[in-house]
Amino acid sequence: MKRLKTRTILPALTALIGLVWVIVGLTKYGWWVEGRPQSGFFPAIIGGLLLFVSILAVMSEMKENPPQFLITHLYPILAAVGMVLAALLIGFFPALILYVFGWLKWYEKYNLFTAGLTTGITTALMYGVFYVWLRVPFPTGILVELL
């Protein structure tokens, strides 16, 4: 049962996406009118094919062993989300410093010098490339705006 749950998740999801594309494509965007294929024509065909192939995939995946997932796989996702939320509050570059330094110092247990130096170089590079060179207008953060 555990196998069924893990390996078949992805093809089951793609089968569902295929089904949605067929239904929405045919009902909302149309198939063929006055000798012309409509906007739903191509997506509905591909959706139908995806539905069919995904069902085949679900059946073949049942025979395979499930891959191993680690709790640590979640950490970069949570850290990235945390950095983005912090960026909205205090601005992109302070959030970047907090994230890189925090990750290296407290999670990877690097010493203060290595974590600080890596953070400094990374921040300088990002600032130089994205802010100075590419002139990307990063949000300054709600707190800075309030001040």
């Binding site: 990235a80 983005v84 994230y99 890189v100 994205f130």
Partner: peptide, 11 residues
């Protein structure tokens, strides 16, 4: 490299 690449991805 993990936090550095993550930062590049976000920026």
């Amino acid at each position: 490299m993990i936090p550095i690449i993550t930062t590049i991805c976000i920026m």
